[in-house]
Write a protein that binds this DNA or RNA. Structure first.
Lengths: 227, 227
DNA sequence: AATAACGTTCTATCAGACAGAACGTTTGGG
DNA sequence: CCCAAACGTTCTGTCTGATAGAACGTTATT
């Protein structure tokens, strides 16, 4: 089976970016031509696109250097890694502490996506698939994502006041959940953490314990997430 | 005058990367199609190129996320900025201390490029253009770049032993220079710093003062450069 | 002053990119 | 369990765009 073909012009453009090896702050057109093997006229056209999107900057002297978009994308990439590296251990702790499933959601339009989850060792537990998409309108984390997303409805102000949301059998009759928001230092909503499990284990008598564990995890996350 | 045209396919590819906004760790093909407005078949081909060069990674679930090359380029970009932010003040200090021109060079094949320089206030001074390319074989900084680049020649071991190099009227009959290497913490050559000026001001009696000032700048640079 | 190297502009040719259809697979709802 | 919707994959005709490379103007070097 032949390997799927990319787009030659894109290959070329990215090869131009690859010419910037460690130790080189900037490169002239001629240097790029030597390193990449492309014609100068080809490079100039490709460079127009790369400049337009901020991947390259052309100085007064005509020399090219990497532009700020490379930093922005790199920071974004790193942030995704950091989130996983931070979130997974925290969800593990939360799951261990409560003996329930701990999970993290982000809003995607009118859905919520489970990015990470840690399930407890016990046999009867709420199984969730990472990457799974669920309705925003159902579930405790959905309520949190709605309440803190800027949508202004009366019910949401109650949730903001409480600082957490509860759902009992909304999406699945046997599942209950409690969720809290994860905010960046600037107060912007990043996602929601939740504990969930068999509804019979989520009686009111157990709420304080669960909300306390969530609050602790929430606090630790805020401390670790640098945005 | 019409604006220079880039390459449409490259524009598209970079627009796909732009779809990864803060808060989104990964995106499905359909999500990319919605966000970018491109057809899925178009995206798939463009994504093959982006994956090939490490700008995107496609997970088992088919979702795309930013790849490690974004980090590598971003780190490279940042490093260039850091270097300017660190180097310029240091060259200024060095120039003020010695009342001579202070400059920083990197090796580019068989040339050396002056990346940064600071000229003293005095009227008679060695003028250098940032970005200027000069022969590697001439000048004190050229000797340093050769000696520390891994080229193994006998003369170079003398320079390594001394830790500095001197040139008297090699490239310009009226100009003398003294240079030292700038090494990363790992010992890798990053470039050379030099002071240069009118040859009559570079008598042997003045060498200790100049080499001391260079050594101080070198030391401060090592402290600040984190590689 | 002459030459070399660089950056810029132009364009004929043809190969490649795209739009969009068709299809198979997966997911979600009744 | 079945059906519909959404997703991802593959294919291809058309036409447009990208490239190679020449030509030219500018700058730098000798």
């Amino acid at each position: 089976m032949t390997e799927a073909k990319g787009v030659e012009a894109v290959d070329r453009a990215l090869q131009i970016l690859d010419c910037f090896t460690p130790g080189e702050t900037d490169l002239s057109l001629a240097e790029l031509a030597r390193k990449s093997g492309f014609y100068k006229s080809t490079i100039i056209r490709l460079a127009v696109s790369l400049e337009k999107f901020g991947y390259l900057i052309r100085g007064d002297s005509g020399r090219y250097r990497l532009g700020p978009t490379t930093w922005r994308l790199g920071a974004h990439y790193r942030r995704c890694f950091d989130l996983a590296g931070i979130m997974r251990p925290e969800l593990k702790l939360l799951s261990d502490a409560t003996q329930e499933t701990a999970s993290y959601y982000v809003r995607e339009g009118e859905s919520r996506i489970c990015l990470f989850r840690s399930e407890p060792a016990r046999s009867i537990r709420h199984s969730i698939t990472e990457g799974a998409s669920m309705p925003l309108m159902q579930g405790a984390s959905g309520k949190i994502l709605l309440a803190y997303s800027g949508d202004q409805s009366e019910g949401d102000s109650t949730i903001r006041k409480l600082g957490f949301a509860i759902s009992l059998g909304e999406r699945d009759a046997e599942v209950a959940a409690i969720a809290m928001p994860v905010l960046s230092r600037g107060g912007r909503l990043m996602g929601a953490i939740a504990v969930s499990g068999l509804i019979t284990r989520f009686g009111e008598d157990r709420h304080p314990e669960l909300t306390a564990a969530l609050a602790e995890a929430q606090k630790r996350l805020v401390d670790q997430i640098t945005v």
